[in-house]
Structures are given as C-alpha cells and as structure tokens.
Design a protein around this nucleic acid. Structure first.
Lengths: 249, 249
DNA sequence: TATCAATATGTTATTTTGACATAATAAGGA
DNA sequence: TCCTTATTATGTCAAAATAACATATTGATA
C-alpha cells in the first residue's frame, strides 16, 4: 500500500534499494563449501549477489546470479531471509576498503538484501568472478574468513535454514552427482547437520522415503568393498519437496 | 554488491521499491480470521502493509504496522516470503480503482513486498484503518473476497507457511487468551490445518511437548462438563520456538 | 430430575526410532 | 598369492511415538 510519492523515473536499470545475496553451497571432499568472491585489488571476500534489474523478478535475479557465477541453470534456489537492518550495508569501513572500486559518494544509502541459498554439484559449477571481483572460489564453511557486509551472518542464517529444510524436505538432488553412494549421501547430511549419524539408521530412514533407486552398478576404485550406486527418483523427490507437512500426519 | 550508480538523495522518508504486507491472523468463533482494510470510497479490500522508512529496519516496520493496525506490541511476527514479480504491484486495474486516492502518475513503478504473518489475540486487537482506508475488519479466511494487488496469493502462501511452522514449532501463544482450554487449542490447530484431529491423540501430543501448564481452574458457563484451563509455560515455549530441528533428533 | 452437549480419559496394535556389532569385499602391499 | 586394512552392507531388539478407537462424566437447562 503506497504512501503518495514522486514517481522518480530513475535512469538506472537496477533497483537501488534492494539487492540479493546467494549462499551457493556444494559438497566436496566430505565438506560443505560455499562460493565466495574476492574483490579486485583487495583480500576482501564476500558472497555472490548483486542488484536486481527493474524489469526482472527477484527470483529471476537470483537465478541469473547463480548462472553468472557458476554457469548452472535450473537449480533449486531457496529464499530464506530478508536482511533489512538499516546499517547492514552502508558502513564506513566497507566504503573505505572498496573506495578504489566504488566512489564512496555513489554508494547506496541503504540496501535491503534478500538471501537465497542454492545447492549445486561441485563438479559441474564453474566459479566465475563478477566485474568487481577477480577471484571466485569455494571455501570450506568451517574456514570462512571475515567477510564484507553482514555476509558471515547471512551464511549462518542460511545454514540454519538448510538444517531446518533438511528436517522436512529431501536434500541432495542438485548437490550430488547423478549417481552416488549411500555413504556419500550420509556424509552430506552429516556435513549439513554438523554431526555424525548411524549408517544403519540412516539407510533405513533414507530408503523409507521412497525417493532413492538402487542401481545394479557399484562404484569401483577404492581399497574397500564396492558400494552400490543410487539415483534419486526425480518424480518422487519433487513430490516430497512439495508436501512438507509432518505434524499429525 | 553494488553496481555503480548515482546516489539520488531521495526526498521521501520511505523506501520507494520495497514494501511489506502483513497477514495478521486471529482465531474467533472457531475460525481463522485475517485482518483486512477497505480503501476509502471503494469496496476494495487489501492486506495491511505499507512502505518502510529509510531509517527503519524492515522487521521494525512490520512491527510498526502491526502496532498501528491492532494496537498490539511484542507479537511473534514471521517473515515468510518475498513477493518480487515485476508486475505484481503496478497494474492498470488497480491504478484505476484507486485513482481518487493516489495520482496514477505518482504510483510506484514497482514494489517488491516482504510478507509477514502474525498471530494475535482476537480480543486484544483493536482494528484500525490507515490513512488510505476507512474500514479495518476481520474476515474469515474461508470467505475472503477478491483483494487488491496479489494479496489473495499472499494469504495463501502465508497459510501454507503457517501450516509448515505448525509442524515443527508451537503455535498459539499470541493467538489465544492467556488461559484457554485444550478443546480451544485443538480447534485452533484444526482451523490452521484445515482438518479434524482426534482429541485423545491431540491431548497426548500437546502435553508431551511440555509447554502447557494445567491450572486448577475450570471454565464455567457452558451447558457441559467444565473444561480445565491451561496456560503456556513461556520459557519452555520460547525454547521450542528456537530449537526446530527434528530430523535424526 | 431428566436430558443434552461437550469434555475427559485409556487401550491396543502398528510404526518409527535409537542403540548397537559383525561379516563381506576390493585394493594394495608383503 | 595371501594378508592387511579401510570401507561398506546389513539385522535385531527395546523403547517411544503414532493411529485408531468408545465411553463415562459433568454442568447447565428444561
């Protein structure tokens, strides 16, 4: 509902008050990784993100950024929180650190940010910097440095939202390669939940969801018993994603 | 992460691209009610909401609007979705319907809206219109008319989010009076979930959460056996609100 | 005091969960 | 070729949670 105001036909093709930040997660070497960008001429890192075009839906902008930073399309991308504190964006320290890239006088007064998280296949993603940055790399979520803006907090909130999602929706479709083993899936769950799980109980629970298909193939190459390969049953998986209500069946 | 742009020191004290909408719910006569506003000189209804001040956090704005429309403070208010489609706000039909209130030339080009829901005590809320509206009233969620903007959809999404919340968090602290009976609580759950529940199973499950305290008092006045009154144990309730992870205990 | 409507309450079978240990296998090295 | 080692696959049992089900009690009213 609007307050009356002037219709300032802004020349910029971007919204000036709203941005988004993407917590893009992958799973590699048994660790959760998050994609970060290093700003040109600095050692300062931040989340991928950016402004929203005036003719672009917010969800579309999130998909665009995911595509630009990883080359990936058609990925499960979840809004999880709006970061709307007044001082989250415009802080003198940041302006100073980035003044060689952005004129401090042209800094946004304030930017509210919509947080998204995405889960992608580590092997398929092609990390790509944006015009302000010169490096795009995966960081172990356990070893993230101090980031620009409130991005450390955004990652914390995303991880909590992801843990919550895990409790009533399946996870893993985009995070794992098409074929994977149950121990791999278990390690993914352990990485997200931050704790170990019993393999027997894990298998029982996972299989009971009815979203996994065991293949005849096994994985070879390790110095150990060959594990079976599994694949998600796409339809059943999507169905579980949509359901979501557990209480009182 | 900003694109470089001009720092247009906007004269308006409000953000021009971001608004919020509040789905304020209460429970009365065994039905879920939602608070709606009727615009001056029209029969058009919409959700409470509005713009965000430039020096105000988004969550603070939601609390302000809740306070302005109901007189209530300190209520559980939950962000549940960002509505960011390009055409959701600026549609010719709406401009025309409201042209006697807002100059169509001064209409926002686009407004992204953050959706919040709140659960309030029907008896304590004082429905109060805002400057654009002349009536503020409770509507049964089953009987909502066609609303302005995308507000019907916003209510649908809010109700779904609420059902999901119900599955892993307690509900009812602000929705019910301080003292209430188990059948009342059950009817609240039934209204939210849209289905009947078995009273014996409901009681067992609710009591097992450890957030209810049975009082010595009973409610008098009905032509039937006096039900016991209960009260939420605030601390345990807040704890349950914070926990939230159910999967693999 | 009889009736009525709503409330309070308990049992059982089924399902789900959590805790727990061992045998099988593939590779690599002796 | 065989032994070692790391990893995977798998089953049982007790406890807890769930779903399904019906009746006795009470307070007001007629």
């Amino acid at each position: 509902m609007p307050q009356e105001k002037t219709n300032h036909s802004n020349a910029s093709p971007y919204l000036s008050e709203l941005t988004l930040d993407c917590v893009i997660l992958s799973f590699h070497e048994d660790c959760l990784k998050v994609l970060l960008l290093r700003w040109k001429g600095t050692q300062e890192w931040s989340l991928p993100g950016g402004p929203i075009r005036r003719n672009e839906a917010v969800d579309a902008a999130a998909n665009r950024i995911l595509k630009e930073r990883t080359g990936l399309d058609d990925i499960f991308l979840q809004q999880f929180h709006v970061f709307g504190e007044v001082e989250r964006y415009n802080r003198e320290g940041i302006k100073y650190k980035l003044k060689h890239l952005i004129d401090p006088d042209k800094w946004y007064e304030r930017a509210v940010s919509v947080g998204y998280y995405a889960l992608v296949d580590h092997a398929k993603a092609m990390p790509t910097p944006d015009p302000f940055t010169e490096q795009c790399a995966w960081w172990d979520v356990q070893q993230i440095p101090a980031l620009l803006f409130d991005h450390n907090r955004i990652i914390q909130v995303a991880r909590k939202a992801l843990r919550t999602q895990l409790s009533w929706q399946p996870i893993g479709y985009n995070l794992l390669p098409e074929k994977f083993t149950l121990p791999e899936l278990q390690r993914l769950y352990e990485a997200i939940l931050g704790k170990g799980l019993d393999p027997r109980n894990f298998q029982r629970k996972m299989l009971s969801l009815g979203i996994l298909e065991r293949l005849a193939e096994r994985r070879r190459g390790g110095a150990f018993k060959s594990p079976y390969l599994y694949r998600f049953k796409k339809e059943e998986y999507e169905l579980k994603l949509k359901e979501s209500n557990l209480f009182f069946s």
